[in-house]
Design a binder for these strands. Structure first.
Length: 444
RNA sequence: GCGGGCGUCGCCAAGUGGUUAAGGCAGCGGCUUGUGGCGCCGCUAUUCGGGGGUUCGAAUCCCCUCGCUCGCCCCA
């Protein structure tokens, strides 16, 4: 077992974990359908240039986290580190903007070459939304509400929505020079990372985790006060709409986000229960990106949810409250019927019956072991199935199939409910009985 | 890229220099050729992530390496 191991930062999703993924995906899909949002699927692999141009050369994602390599034609390729750039590329390349504004969602794996830690992997999964061609502040609120409502519907309490306005390019330019001026005279008080950023990306200093730097920033110039009248009005309007939707939020003056393309509204949804990597959902407006990638000037806004972090949260909340909504999501589909069978003729008949029952909509597990009956019963019990259906030589002889309720509590006291006989050649009465006595699966 | 913690069976582990590496769970087989929850019995690591060294003797000490994990940076 030493050789065939997955690469660092890659993760297998095992059968017991996939139900929760499916539950999230299906709930998300219904939210998107209701909101008139269509799915888009783009390649995992893109030309490196798309991301360096789109996300920004100076960002950490592009500078040190891209999963890049040369293909056989010596082209530089990169496994997508995020979804937005690819979606915009696809929209432009396929002329979708000619059909008007686009409301899109996507889901799938993303790749960043970083050291893994809790809530961070090299291959991870995002679920994202992009509204392209809209600049009204109502669309900001709608996009945020979409994320918020989905997370609520997944049973997540305890989330915090933080919003900020980064203003437009002009606003940021004036703020940047103010901030740099102010900080330069106090450079020695900054932590070393922030000192480096003073030259490269000074706005990022604002969300430094260093407490001394944070204390210093208390007195620094505020981004808010550099916003133009229009940007301020815009931000106020976003807030009014969020209030109208009863979505609680906090304004975080320090929220700047690490991708270069953000403009105006930026937001994050975090959970205090996640440890160091606490952001579940991040997003914002990006009104310049499309032009930057060669398209017509087009406003847009979007977000992405990190699915691994989301699932981490759901699992924590499920533990705290095993009967809550979040806990129901990881429910496993146990079979309705476990088919116990032994003997050449019986096994052939059982195979046929299993198909008929499945065609009728029942979840059926067929035991193919030809093993002793007591072994098969043990497996039936473990499978979590509600019913055991038994076919052996005796049943073939009498033409009666045996249906047993596997519910433990019924064993001794109620033999009638515990075992029934049904004709082998006409499954109608069996199916009828299964339907009318349909009970929820035991074992969650 | 930089720090901290950890690597003994599929999982959880005891063992911290002395001759056969506890135990529990799961798995398989039996008690019980055709009837499940319980019980009892048996089986399942020539080997302690890998390599090298010290020693009469190493899972236990030293060095190197690989992997996992948490944190920093940054992000979902």
């Amino acid at each position: 077992m030493n050789h065939l191991k997955k690469l660092r930062g890659m993760v297998d999703l095992l059968p017991e974990q996939t139900p929760i993924w499916q539950a999230i995906e299906s709930l998300a899909r219904t939210h998107f359908v209701r909101a008139g949002i269509s799915e888009i699927r783009t390649p995992l692999l893109e030309a490196t240039e798309l991301f360096s141009k789109g996300i920004g050369e100076e960002t950490d994602v592009v500078g040190k986290e891209m999963y890049s390599f040369l293909d056989r034609g010596e082209r530089s390729c990169t496994l997508r580190p995020e979804g937005t750039a690819s979606v915009i590329r696809a929209v432009l390349e396929n002329g979708l903007l000619n059909k008007g504004m686009q409301r899109l969602w996507y889901a799938g794996p993303m790749f960043r070459y970083e050291r893994p830690q809790a809530g961070r992997q090299r291959q991870f999964h995002q679920l994202g939304v992009e509204f392209i061609g809209l600049n009204q502040t109502r669309s900001d609120a709608e996009v945020i509400a979409l994320a918020w409502n989905l997370l609520q519907d997944l049973g997540l309490n305890n989330l915090e929505l933080e919003i900020n306005s980064l203003g437009d390019e002009e606003d940021r330019k004036t703020f940047r020079s103010q901030l740099v001026n102010w900080l330069q005279s106090r450079e020695s008080a900054l932590d070393t990372d922030s000192q480096k950023r003073l030259l490269q990306n000074p706005l990022r200093i604002l969300d430094s985790k260093n407490s001394q730097t944070q204390a210093l920033l208390e007195k620094a110039p505020k981004l808010h006060s550099s916003l133009s009248k229009e940007s301020q009005k815009r931000f106020a309007s976003v807030q009014i709409h969020l209030q109208a939707l009863d979505i609680p939020f906090k304004i975080n003056d320090r929220l700047v986000r690490g991708l270069d393309y953000y403009d105006q509204t930026a937001f994050e949804i975090t959970s205090p229960q996640l440890g160091a990597q606490s952001t579940v959902c991040g997003g914002g407006r990006y009104n310049r990106l499309i032009e930057q990638l060669g398209g017509p000037p087009t406003p847009a806004i979007g977000w992405a949810i990190g699915l691994e972090r989301l699932i981490l949260l759901i699992q924590q909340i499920s533990q705290e409250n095993p009967s809550g909504k979040a806990a129901l999501l990881s429910k496993i589909n146990h079979p309705d019927i476990f088919l116990i069978n032994k003997g050449a003729d019986a096994e052939k008949k059982a195979l046929v019956i299993s198909q008929e029952l499945r065609a009728a909509g029942f979840i059926v597990e067929l035991d193919c072991s030809s093993g002793a009956f007591n072994k098969q019963f043990k497996r039936a019990n473990r499978s979590g199935a509600r019913w055991a259906l038994v076919i052996g030589d005796d049943e073939m002889r009498t033409g009666q199939i045996r249906l047993k309720n596997l519910d433990h509590s019924l064993k001794q006291n109620d033999p009638i409910q515990n075992e029934q006989l049904h004709p082998l050649n006409n499954l109608e009465s069996l199916m009828e009985s299964l339907r009318t006595q349909a009970t929820p699966n035991k074992n969650n």
